[in-house]
Amino acid sequence: SPPSPVALPPFFMRGSIIQLADGELKRVEDLKTEDFIQSAEISSELKIDSSTVERIDSGQSPNAVVIQFSVGELKAQVCVEVLVEYPFFVFGQGWSSCCPDRTTQLFELSCAKLCVGDVCVSLTLRSLR
């Protein structure tokens, strides 16, 4: 059975201060694709992967969804169950969630609609390669 939905962390709230790997501080709403790529390049442990949304299904509770991703070059299939408002960062697009209206309502974070085919920023350990 899938894991419980991930609870919503505080750092997606508009105005949250995020520290990049080089020490630079940015607000969560100002982050760009390059910020994630450059931070991962500096990191000795973490590697950015491209994770393509393959399916979006209803979750076990009404406000949850199960998202199936195809992760990295090996296209490993990984499912996560999250609340509909949980934002993912889509390459070249920015924050996106299954229910952007709700994300904006709860976090004041402007969001696009997450769709099948979107390529999200995700992390893996370098040693897993």
């Binding site: 505080p10 982050l31 931070s39 992760v71 490993a76 992390l123």
Partner: peptide
């Protein structure tokens, strides 16, 4: 004001051994 590390915003999607 709390400061959060960049990697906390990104899901960790690791292939599992059972795959």
């Amino acid at each position: 004001v709390p400061v959060f590390p960049w990697h906390s915003l990104v899901p960790f999607l690791a292939p599992t051994q059972s795959d």
